[in-house]
Design a protein around this nucleic acid. Structure first.
Lengths: 242, 242
DNA sequence: TAGTGGTCTAGACCACTCC
DNA sequence: GAGTGGTCTAGACCACTAG
């Protein structure tokens, strides 16, 4: 039989995708439990083992979290432990410290070529630009500039950012239904310009990490492009290779 | 029943560890196939499904590689595709390019406090220090300084390093039986000192990435401590977050 | 005690590779 | 065609959590 379908995928992956679709549709909210494996097996008309393998994949991707004896839960950025899933910053002396976000600006604008390419939108589309400082132990360590698609984050304001207690991604999750699932970062070394140096409390031309990130939601949809400048006087960017 | 054994581990993990032990003992060499799941199941007296789950874990850790229809293989740094498993460097314009290693030095020395701590050996133990430059497309991009435990890498010489065609880790694997399995990297931004700047062909004080790595072999044994200085004029350090 | 996920088994069939 | 890993199923029992 000559069927040249590149669309074949095993049953468990189809189930995986059905679960992701239900998540996208908002059927189960972050932090909540999804139905048991038995129930899902019944619903999709497959065996429990197949559902299990689908959930295994989603758990490996940090989209779901299993808890023995309790159920399987939609992972959430509300969880304080989730903060360091995307923030690879550690203090040189001592472990991770909960960062505090200090919003500086929140402006409307139009997407340039680069922002459009990274966000997968048309040049000229409305975007929102957020600038903020991240403080660790009271000291400014990171200055971030974020580019967000305007249609997704409609209504985002500086007041909202200032009022929010918690991580930016937990705000995005609970106010805009946007759940960051994975990201790609490109790291380079750059010299601190005067304005940046002042904010971070370092000398002009001090070497800084430039961390450029594209973050994706379900279905590999890019929903954030950001560039951070990290002072690595007292901190480093940590990475596990395997 | 009050048994306070924290040593419990499921059968498939015990099988996993038995397979790792066999790998450590050199029963199967890098690049070679290990016995089929059926054979292993027979050998260990468990079902094929349990062996499968053990191999699943080892494949997720990149210690084994499955190939449908052919068998399961011991992963190897000889494979050119494996080079970028530990080298997170990409050209700003274009994809990855095969790097060329240029050894500069290979000296004997004694471990200081820091080297001893990172390598898990006694201060004063014999170590080998290797310095080399990594060239991409003919241009020097990285300068590395490596600290290796002397007992493991006995006999390593500058001639051997210069003669070797291939990655450093493939040399370690085939000549010393040392197989790097995972690593931790700490990234910071630093200014180029004069000597380094000259080697990398950049101006003095140019911001560089400082990448400090501890690499581990089977059983989480640290076998390499290195520090690399990366020029990010034409390249960046890439990282996937999830 | 009931319900959840976690482990383990056994067997069937599919997809891929090689001879 | 024979052998490998890949998928799918069904059922049993274990470990953990909660009421």
């Amino acid at each position: 039989m000559a069927h040249e379908s590149p669309t074949f995928s095993p049953l468990y992956r189809q189930i995986r995708n059905l679960i992701v679709q239900a998540l996208e549709a908002g059927e189960w909210q972050p932090g909540q439990a999804i139905p048991s494996e038995q129930e899902l097996a019944l619903r999709f008309g497959v065996s429990q083992g197949t559902v299990r393998k689908a959930i295994d994949e989603l758990a490996a991707e940090n989209i779901l979290v299993r808890r023995q004896g309790k159920g399987t839960f939609v992972s959430t950025h509300q969880d304080p432990r989730a903060v360091f899933r995307f923030l690879r910053l550690k203090a040189i002396n001592g472990g991770p410290v909960l960062p505090k976000s200090m919003p500086l600006e929140c402006m409307r604008g139009k997407a340039g070529q680069e922002a459009a390419r990274n966000l997968g939108i048309a040049p000229g589309s409305q975007i929102i630009i957020v600038r903020r400082v991240l403080k660790l132990e009271g000291k400014p360590v990171v200055i971030d500039e974020m580019y967000l698609p305007g249609d997704v984050f409609q209504g985002l304001s500086i007041e909202q950012l200032k009022d929010w207690q918690g991580s930016l991604y937990s705000l995005f999750e609970s106010r805009f239904g946007v759940r960051m699932v994975r990201a790609t970062e490109k790291v380079r070394a750059v010299a601190a310009e005067r304005a940046v140096a002042e904010v971070l409390g370092v000398a002009e031309n001090t070497p800084l990490l430039s961390v450029e990130r594209v973050a994706y939601s379900y279905g590999d949809k890019p929903v954030e492009w950001r560039r951070g400048l990290y002072s690595t006087a007292d901190h480093f960017y940590i990475n596990e290779l395997s």
